[in-house]
Each structure stands twice: as C-alpha cells, then as structure tokens.
Design a binder for these strands. Sequence first.
DNA 1: CACAGGATCGTT
DNA 2: ACGATCCTGTGT
Length: 205
Amino acid sequence: MRPLPAEFYARDALEVAYDLIGCTITVGEVSVKITEVEAYRHPGDTANHARFGRTPRNAPMWGPPGHAYIYLCYGLHRMLNLVTGKEGEAEAVLIRAAEPVEGLSLIRERRGGKSGPVLLTGPGKVGAALGLPMAWSGRPLDAEIQVFARSEAPPLVVGPRVGIDYASEADRVAPWRVALAGSAWVSLRKSLRSKEEANTAPVTP
DNA sequence: CACAGGATCGTT
DNA sequence: ACGATCCTGTGT
C-alpha cells in the first residue's frame, strides 16, 4: 500500500478536508483513522496562520502540497497540518481528532496511560499520540508521516472551526470543520450538522 | 528588542 | 475558570 500522492492534496483545502475523514495516518508503530479536521484556506481566510503573509513558521504552507506543517501551540502542543492547494498558496488541513488503529499501547503510553476517546480527541492530543517532533514540519507525507486512502466515503458532519476568535465574523462561522458522523472519537459534537443539511441551508452573509 | 497572545489541555 | 509554557509575529 502506497501513501496518498501529492495530487490528492493539490486541491482546495475544504475538498481535501472532506476526503481525509476516514483516511489513516501512520507514524512508525502507530496508525490512526482521521475523524475530525479543519480547513484553513487561502487567500482571504482571516483564521489562517498565513494571513499576514509568509513567515519562517508557516513557510511549509506556501510550498508544494502533500507536506506536513507542524507548529507549537501554547508552548507545548504540537499540531499537525497537511498542506493542500497549489504551491504559492498557503492552504492546509488541521488534524483535530482520530481513532486508534494500531499501536494502542504506545498511544496510551504517550498519553499518560489513559484510554478511550480522550486519547485522540483534540489536535494537541493527536500530535502527542503520534510523537511528532517539530523538526518534521515541512517534511513530505511519504516519509516519517504517511497518509493512506480510505476504502469508502463515510457520512460527514460539518460546523464552525474552533479557537479562532481573532478571525472575521464570516470566517468564524464558516462550516469548515469536518467530522465523521456518529463517531465517539470527535472532539466536539456541538454545532455540527450533516454536510447535506449545511450545503442546502441558507448562506450566511 | 520588548511584548502580547496563541488553530490547547488538564486540573480546580 | 485558570495556569502551563515558550515561541511567534508585530511594532518600535
């Protein structure tokens, strides 16, 4: 089995976000199924780390798709993003939650011996469970970090993104958080609706 | 060079 | 409700 090719990521971040739910991330002995993500788009997304332009930290987002963008949050949490879109655009999908597939004992060890959804329901928890070093930011997704395709498209729910109070009103309410419908391995159930319902609902100005 | 604050988490 | 914990981005 081969990791998803760069072409998979060379599309709008929201499209990739829909298609990443149910895919598998493998890092060494640990494999997890993606259950929740957020799309950060470009240009014009005031929640995006690249909203002020290119900086040393966000440089991987501006590069070619199919690479990792990892950043340190609150001085301790390592957050994994998958770079999407064309080179020269700064788009990425944040991995917010997952479900264990392989390496549960190592996941539990890295997460303080806990068990259940608390292991992987949150972007900082995913980074800890995968044991990501900051040095992997910018690495291609066919090396230390690999992502594999799902077998079939699962039911999705969508809602507003989390933790972006600094963004514009429109960007705060944009339904660019995507999760696996009915999964217990999702960080927040509140204000998530089915993708179909969201797509047919009146568009907010 | 100083400083404010963060795409969070776990405990109180 | 709050502290951890430190790097980043911005402004001077």
